[in-house]
């Protein structure tokens, strides 16, 4: 398998951006594909439900550094859960998306987090909780505070977005990109100091090891 160990893949040539794999997870119709489409193509329209998985790439320029995202957009329906698991493999980052007007989708995001925790070592993957559809503020069922508190309690990044109005969409991906680069720099720093704990990345994808939640 390519990219089994979850480490970012260096660009083919020197000076090319590192490639990070990002998966979009969440219930059906929360706006996963819309976020991806808005971010990658600056477009918002009625999108068919994703069956299986869709795939996008985008280069993120952060001024001093740049990286390339491989964005894997997954089907939200419960039925596709067992298929979607395949797409987790080798992910560097995950967006857990819920719909701020649907409490159930927020609960589902928590469930997805558990799944991620079963699949990865702590800190191995950058996770951001994303509350989408802030344009439907009147119908809100999940407050900003609820989202933020949950994210903080689990050590996740957190933002609210509107894919429809293109509000905070780029910010979400940029924040994840910055976090990824910071973690990578930190790791490289530690590696140079010969820190043995850093063997983490060389182990096969984490099965059987759970976070203490």
């Amino acid at each position: 398998m390519a990219q089994v160990d979850g480490a970012p893949r260096p660009g083919a040539a020197l000076g090319q951006a590192c490639i990070f794999k990002l998966v979009l997870l969440g219930s059906g119709s929360v706006g996963k594909s819309s976020l991806a489409l808005q971010y990658v193509k600056n477009d918002f329209r009625s999108i068919l439900p994703t069956v299986g998985c869709a795939f996008f790439t985008k280069v993120v320029d952060l001024g001093a550094a740049s990286l390339k995202f491989e964005i894997w957009d997954t089907a939200g329906q419960e039925k596709y859960h067992s298929v979607c698991h395949l797409y987790f493999r080798g992910a560097n980052a995950a967006l857990l998306v819920y719909d701020v007007t649907r409490k159930a989708s927020f609960c589902k995001a928590r469930q997805w987090l558990k799944d991620l925790e079963e699949e990865f070592h702590p800190g191995e993957v950058v996770v951001m909780l994303v509350g989408n559809k802030t344009d439907l503020n009147q119908e809100r069922e999940v407050t900003f505070e609820e989202g933020r508190e949950f994210a903080e309690s689990k050590g996740l990044l957190f933002m609210e977005t509107s894919a429809k109005l293109n509000h905070q969409v780029t910010e979400v991906f940029s924040a994840v990109a910055r976090e990824l680069l910071q973690r990578q720099e930190k790791k490289e720093g530690q590696r140079q100091q010969g820190d043995a704990r850093l063997a983490l990345n060389e182990t096969p994808p984490g099965r059987g090891r759970c976070c203490a939640h």
Partner: peptide
């Protein structure tokens, strides 16, 4: 050689029987 699973490229073909 790329470790690519068939499901990634053909799942829609089977699930939607080529619709869309």
């Amino acid at each position: 050689s790329h470790g690519l699973l068939w499901t990634l490229v053909v799942s829609r073909w089977f699930i939607c029987l080529f619709v869309d």
